[in-house]
Simulated scan of single mutants.
Amino acid sequence: MFNAQVSLRNRQCGAALLTSLLILLVLSLLAVASMQNVSLQEKMVSAVKDGQVALEAAEYAARQAELELENNTVTLGNFGVKTGLYLKSEAPNVFAATTWSAGEGAKSVAASGFPTDELAEAPRYLIEHVGQVITSEQIDDLAIGNYGGASAAAPPEGFRIVAWSSGRTGQTTRIVEVFYGKD
């Protein structure tokens, strides 16, 4: 009778060990799968933040170009002559990487004032003069500010501003296009 009790007890200890190892294996697999999911979500959040920083910097560069036009820093005589200023239909391909590179032969202008420690590269912009945008009759119909229905007023000059920026990692880029009119 003593031998039967000993052999029954030995069999039970092995089954408990095997069951606990199986449970531990299942819990380990769940933990690894959860860690991979969290890692993927972290990468997605980082990419979204990088894109938002790049978009903000590109908008900043576009605004700086608008201010240069508004403050008469750039005149019509500069177009086709100075870097980053192009006549109608002469602007480079905005999707080409060479358009936004710095250094000798640059086709765009670096925007200043944005905290560059947030970016891989400084934001850049180019301005294209597209000519007069509307006729004086359309100005009267649209009641555009500063024209007050004056039929003798010259139509505003139109400009296409394209701004580019990279994100913090340099793997994200954003391009913003703005049309700007100035009398």
Rank of each mutant, 00 (worst) to 15 (best):
M1K: 11
A4I: 13
V6M: 14
N10Y: 15
C13Q: 15
A15T: 04
A16T: 13
A16S: 14
L18F: 08
T19V: 14
T19M: 14
L24V: 13
S28H: 09
S28M: 09
L30E: 09
L30C: 15
A31M: 11
S34A: 12
S34H: 10
M35Q: 15
M35S: 15
N37E: 09
L40T: 09
Q41H: 05
K43Q: 14
S46R: 09
V48S: 09
D50E: 07
D50R: 02
G51A: 03
A54F: 06
L55R: 08
A57N: 01
A57P: 02
A58E: 02
A61P: 04
R63M: 08
A65T: 02
E66V: 03
E68I: 02
L69D: 06
N71S: 15
N72Y: 06
N72Q: 14
T73R: 11
T73H: 10
V74M: 03
L76Y: 01
G77A: 15
G77M: 05
N78T: 12
G80E: 08
K82E: 15
K82N: 14
T83C: 06
T83F: 05
G84M: 03
L85F: 04
S89T: 10
P92E: 11
V94Y: 09
A96I: 06
A97R: 07
W100K: 05
G105P: 03
A106T: 05
K107V: 07
V109K: 02
S112M: 10
F114Y: 15
E121G: 00
E121K: 06
E121D: 10
E121P: 00
L126E: 02
V130P: 02
V130W: 00
G131M: 03
Q132E: 14
S136Y: 01
D140E: 14
L142I: 10
A143W: 05
I144D: 10
G145K: 12
N146T: 11
A150E: 10
P156Q: 08
G158F: 01
G158H: 01
I161W: 04
I161D: 04
A163N: 03
W164Q: 01
S165T: 07
S165R: 03
S165G: 00
S166L: 12
S166C: 04
G167R: 04
Q171R: 13
Q171V: 04
T172M: 09
T172R: 06
T173Y: 13
R174P: 00
R174S: 01
I175F: 08
I175D: 05
V176S: 01
E177C: 12
G181H: 08
D183L: 07
